[in-house]
């Protein structure tokens, strides 16, 4: 062992020199190189992972927004079809209402017309009846005149007039 170390000129001093040199170097490198570089690597990797995370979040948000938009569109479509259905219903109802009203009106008009016709007919009948009476009277008059004309009839008429005048004057005088 001794001879081996002799051959390679290994001794405690040289060994210690190398070890101490290395340890000092290690201390300095660790302090001034490794720690800052490792910190930077950590920072970089955390930045990268944060970037990835952000991208993922953005993708998720986009997906969410798309779903929302789709839902809104579906909602709007449903709303629109509802509106249309409502409008249709209202239109149908209105039409039915109007039709019913028109029908009622027509019926009323018809009824009134019928009543007028009936009334007219009654009036016409009454008038006819009066005329017929007149005609009958005239015919009867004619018949009667031919029987009693001249002084007899005149006297009869004058007597009648006088009677009615007297009755009138009496009545009026009593009243006055």
């Amino acid at each position: 062992m001794g001879a081996f170390f002799e051959a390679f000129q290994v001794d405690v001093w040289k060994l210690a020199f190398q070890v101490i040199n290395f340890l000092i170097l290690l201390y300095l490198l660790n302090r001034f190189l490794f720690k800052p570089v490792l910190a930077r690597l950590d920072e970089r990797s955390s930045k990268i992972s944060k970037g990835l995370e952000d991208a993922e979040t953005a993708a998720r948000d986009r997906e969410l927004a798309r779903a929302e938009r789709e839902a809104a569109v579906t909602e709007a479509r449903k709303e629109a079809s509802n509106l249309i259905a409502n409008a249709n219903k209202i239109a149908t109802d209105t039409r039915n209402e109007i039709l019913a009203e028109a029908r009622a009106e027509a019926e009323k008009v018809t009824e009134r017309a019928r009543q007028e016709i009936v009334a007219e007919k009654d009036r016409a009948m009454a008038e006819l009846r009066a005329q017929v009476a007149d005609l009958a009277l005239a015919a009867a008059g004619k018949l009667v005149r031919s029987e009693m004309d001249g002084p007899t009839q005149r006297r009869l008429v004058e007597e009648f007039l006088a009677e009615s005048k007297a009755a009138n004057g009496k009545g009026a005088g009593a009243r006055n």
């Binding site: 040199n21 170097l25 300095l28 490198l29 001034f32 190189l33 800052p36 570089v37 920072e43």
Partner: peptide, 18 residues
Amino acid sequence: ASVLLLLAAWYITRRSAL
């Protein structure tokens, strides 16, 4: 070797940008 390494370390960390 030590001096070279320390010089390199100094150069790297002198103004270390991300």
